[in-house]
C-alpha cells in the first residue's frame, strides 16, 4: 500500500516532523517571545554567584582591578620602554576593563550549551537563548565595572567629559559582536569538545595583540601594513573607541566607528544563522 508510507500519511493528516529545526523566521519569533527567559536567567546567575561568594558583587570589580594591577606592575614598572602612551595607567585600565567583557563572553559562551545539556534535554525552547543569556549576564556585570572605571579614571587625572556617554553605544555594538562570537563558539564546542580548551588561548592571543598594555601605533609605526591589520581587528576597535570616549588625549580615525559597527552587525548575523543551522543537534551527546 503506497499511500501508507509514513511521510504520505503524515502529510495527509498534517503532522509535522518533530525535532527538526524550525524555519528561520519562526525561530527568531520564538526567541523574541521568550526573551524574558534569557534576561531572567542572566539576572539569576549573577544573584546566585553573589550569594555563594562572601565578597559577592565586589568580585565582579575586584577581578579586573587585580588584573590591571598585575599588568600595570609587569608592563609599567618592570618592562619599562617607550611603547607606552601618555597617562599609561588610565590607558591600561580602559583596555583591561573593556577586554574583560569580550574575554568573559567568549569563555562562558563556549560552555553555553555543553554545560547545560540537562536543561536542553528536559525543556524545548530556542537554544540560542543560552548564549544570549551568557552575553546579557556579562553586560550586566559591565555596569558596575564601568562605574568603578569612571572613578579610577578621575583618580588618575582624567577629566569627566560629555564624551563619556559614548561608552553606551560602544558597549551596545560590542554586545552584538560578543553575542555573535558566543553563538559561534557555543555551536563549535558542541561539535568538538576540544574547542573549550582552545578558547583561553584564543582569548590570550586577542589580549596580547589588541594593544592593551602598549600602544599599537607606537610599536608598529614602521610597519603600516601590520598596523592596518591590527586596526581592523574588532576587539582593538572597541577598545580604541572606548579610549577615545573616556580619555582626554586619544584621537581615533572616525572610520573606526564604521568598522566597529560592521563587525558588530556582521558577526551577530553570521552567529545567529550559524547557531540556528545546528539547532536540532543540541542536546545530543
Amino acid at each position: 500500500m503506497i499511500e501508507d508510507s509514513p511521510s504520505a500519511l503524515a502529510e495527509r493528516y498534517g503532522l509535522i516532523r518533530v525535532g527538526l529545526r524550525p524555519r528561520f523566521g519562526k525561530y527568531l519569533a520564538d526567541t523574541w517571545r521568550r526573551r524574558n527567559f534569557a534576561r531572567t536567567l542572566a539576572r539569576y546567575r549573577i544573584q546566585s554567584e553573589n550569594e555563594r561568594n562572601r565578597l559577592g558583587m565586589a568580585w565582579v570589580v575586584v577581578k579586573p582591578l587585580l588584573n590591571a594591577l598585575i599588568y600595570g606592575l609587569v608592563f609599567g614598572l618592570i618592562l619599562d620602554n617607550d611603547s607606552r602612551p601618555e597617562n599609561f595607567i588610565a590607558f591600561l585600565l580602559v583596555g583591561v576593563f573593556v577586554f574583560e567583557y569580550f574575554g568573559n563572553s567568549i569563555g562562558q559562551g563556549s560552555k553555553a550549551i555543553i554545560s547545560n545539556t540537562r536543561l536542553v534535554r528536559s525543556l524545548s525552547f530556542p537554544r540560542i537563548l543560552l548564549p544570549i543569556a551568557v552575553v546579557l549576564e556579562q553586560l550586566y556585570r559591565m555596569v558596575p565595572i564601568l562605574g568603578v572605571l569612571g572613578v579610577l579614571l578621575v583618580l588618575f587625572g582624567e577629566p569627566v567629559r560629555w564624551s563619556w556617554l559614548l561608552i553606551v553605544p560602544i558597549m551596545l555594538m560590542m554586545s552584538f559582536f560578543n553575542a555573535g562570537v558566543a553563538m559561534i563558539v557555543a555551536r563549535m564546542s558542541v561539535h568538538l569538545r576540544d574547542i573549550k580548551q582552545v578558547i583561553p588561548v584564543v582569548s590570550r592571543i586577542m589580549f596580547y595583540t589588541s594593544g592593551i598594555f602598549y600602544s599599537v601605533d607606537l610599536i608598529l609605526a614602521q610597519r603600516p601594513d601590520l598596523l592596518l591589520i591590527v586596526h581592523l581587528t574588532p576587539v582593538y576597535e572597541f577598545i580604541s573607541l572606548s579610549r577615545n570616549a573616556l580619555l582626554a588625549d586619544f584621537p581615533v580615525d572616525p572610520s573606526l566607528w564604521l568598522w566597529a559597527g560592521l563587525w558588530a552587525v556582521g558577526t551577530f548575523v553570521f552567529g545567529v544563522i550559524f547557531f540556528w543551522r545546528a539547532e536540532e543537534r543540541y542536546g545530543r551527546d
Binding site: 503532522l15 516532523r17 518533530v18 542536546g283
Partner: peptide, 21 residues
C-alpha cells in the same frame, strides 16, 4: 519518549507529530 518529544534527536528515522509533544 525523549525522541518523540524531539529532545533527543534520532540518528536515523523520523518522528511526525500533530503538535510539539
Amino acid at each position: 519518549l525523549r525522541t518523540v518529544a524531539g529532545l533527543t534527536p534520532a540518528s536515523s528515522g523520523v518522528v511526525y507529530a500533530e503538535d510539539q509533544p
